[in-house]
Design a protein around this nucleic acid. Structure first.
Lengths: 109, 109
DNA sequence: TATACCTGCAACCAGGAGGTTGCAGATGGC
DNA sequence: GCCATCTGCAACCTCCTGGTTGCAGGTATA
């Protein structure tokens, strides 16, 4: 099971992406660039504190990063972890393709 | 925000993948092919009921499917949703690349 | 300096997630 | 028929999550 090593530590990233509010935050940071908490809260329907918590969850998964700029805190995306999550899905898909190949080889022999 | 349509309904899939036990189940079903609950429980450290619940969560996200075969229930992977999740990550990454391009264009002018 | 704004911290709450146990119902093999 | 095995259902428990509110502390600006 060499594939398990590829999946190691990927679950937290998926868990971070597994919330619609957070997914929207990621998408917004991705398309709109870095933004302050107040600006990120403006487009949402929940409280600023809720947005703050979601941002911290995303930061815990390594997906975003923040820096204080003046009196506001600016959050920006960190796409490396995103790439890693995509690679994990690729790994699973590759496993699947191999399984299909094995099945086909088994049927055809 | 045309990207939101691409991300619509993707969060449940990520949430389903955001648990290590479930991720291992997906990986196992992917590499080992369909298996019964008892067989899936054998390699795990939690109860059969816990595995059953996790399988139902995965089924709710459209990632797996089950069928009764004799006295046992056989679960198998359904890779279409997995592909869709990968495409969602691709969409976000594409957004990111476009944002980088815009930034570069802005800097260079 | 006074004021408006942005943020951080803490307490609190309802609901869901993950997990277990116990028991009952089917199903296959002897 | 009898027994072992596999599953399904229900109750229950603990802990985390998403969310809110209130208040205090910095920071820009008139």
């Amino acid at each position: 099971m060499a594939s398990n090593t590829a999946l190691k530590g990927t679950a937290p990233v998926f868990a971070a992406l597994g919330d619609e509010t957070r997914l929207r935050l990621v998408s917004r940071l991705c398309s709109g660039g870095p933004a302050s908490i107040a600006r990120l809260t403006a487009g949402s329907s929940v409280t600023r504190q809720a947005i703050t918590k979601h941002l911290h969850v995303l930061a815990g998964a390594g997906l975003v990063r923040s820096a204080r700029r003046g009196r506001e805190r600016v959050w920006e995306l960190r796409p490396r972890q995103l790439e890693q999550a995509r690679e994990s899905l690729d790994a699973i898909s590759r496993q699947w393709d191999e399984a299909l190949d094995r099945l086909k080889a088994f049927v055809e022999r």
